[in-house]
Amino acid sequence: MSAINQHTSRIDRAGELRVNQETLDQLWQRAQILQIAEGRIAAVDSKLSLINAEQVAANIAAHTFTEGSRYFLGLDLHTKAPFFAWDTEWVGTIADEVKEVGFSTVREIGSLLSEQELEISLHAMGLSNWHRAHPRCPRCGGATRVDLGGAARTCDADGSQHHPRTDSAVIVLVKDRSDRILLGHQPIWPEGRFSTFAGFLEPGETFEQCVAREVLEESAVVVTELNYLGSQPWPFPASIMIAFEAVTDNPERAQGDGQEITEVKWFTRAQLLAAAKDGSLLLPPSISVARKMIERWLGESAPGGQTWR
């Protein structure tokens, strides 16, 4: 079977354009702009609601939203039309139910967006999360400002420049020699929610070492025959998921560690389909690489399973 998430980019990030503020200002005036408001993206009927620079200015003038920050996302590969994100907040005290009107989260609608829309949404959210979490310089504590079209922050006090970081994490589909898969349940999830095993890369560790360690820690099984499947950006808040499948020769040892994983289950294809259909098994959402890994093994789409917690 083919790998997962190996699609080519729909966006030219055009990094060479980030260094010239005058060029960025010109691009902004004709850009398609994705608005982010306090972690939500502007979308209606599961489609992004892209706006233009005049509409941004009108919202600021009306004191509906703060001036916010601009992030250059790149150019359409074919039309060369520029895309930006406008990262802002509502002005004043606004009820949560009002904020949901015309806005959604990438998690909620990501699986319904086009590939290009999802790509710019993940890029925009990753930048937004990083900028909001790093308002000050880690060297001197001084205030930092958005620089290079959102690709960096600069501290004017000591002249240092800081760039977004992405946390690497492996995610693993564990199989046995009978081609069953092992899924685990985390205590923070609702009853019946099971997924693949995952964990963050530690300093000085290879992806392969991380796969073996995380699976052993969480499920007590030893894995071999690692096979790389693909990767997925996961800016919730700042990860990249590196997907593998692996095989164990000691399936009978499988058990949760009691902390991160409280229950594990082996599934044949027939068992997984039956449990998903009757609702006793809740799978990861269809936007996630975990769901794609499971469906790749299954050979078809699995029913249900849009829970996040």
Rank of each mutant, 00 (worst) to 15 (best):
N5M: 10
N5Q: 06
Q6G: 13
H7T: 08
S9Y: 04
S9N: 08
R10N: 05
R13G: 01
G15H: 09
G15K: 06
G15S: 02
L27N: 07
W28L: 15
A31Q: 03
Q32G: 01
R40N: 12
D45I: 01
L48E: 06
S49V: 03
Q55I: 02
A57P: 03
A61S: 11
T64H: 07
T66Q: 14
R70W: 10
R70E: 14
R70P: 10
Y71P: 05
Y71H: 11
A81Q: 14
F83H: 13
F84L: 13
W86C: 08
E89G: 11
G92F: 12
E97R: 08
V98Q: 10
V101T: 13
G102F: 13
G102S: 09
Q116N: 06
L122N: 04
S128Q: 14
N129L: 07
R132Y: 09
G142A: 15
G142Q: 15
T144M: 15
V146Y: 00
G150W: 06
D156H: 12
G159N: 12
S160I: 07
H163D: 04
R165M: 07
S168R: 12
V170A: 02
V172D: 01
L173E: 09
L173S: 09
D176G: 00
R177E: 05
D179S: 06
H185I: 02
H185G: 01
Q186W: 11
W189T: 09
W189G: 05
W189D: 13
E191G: 13
F194V: 05
A198S: 11
G199W: 02
F200E: 04
F200G: 12
E205M: 14
E205N: 10
C210M: 04
A212N: 10
E214R: 13
V215Q: 02
V223C: 00
E225I: 00
N227T: 15
P235L: 09
P235V: 09
P237S: 15
I242A: 00
D249A: 10
N250V: 05
E252T: 03
E252L: 04
R253P: 00
G258Y: 03
V264P: 00
K265Q: 12
T268R: 02
T268K: 01
G279L: 10
R291A: 08
R291K: 12
E295I: 01
W297P: 04
S301C: 05
G304A: 11
G304E: 11
Q306F: 10
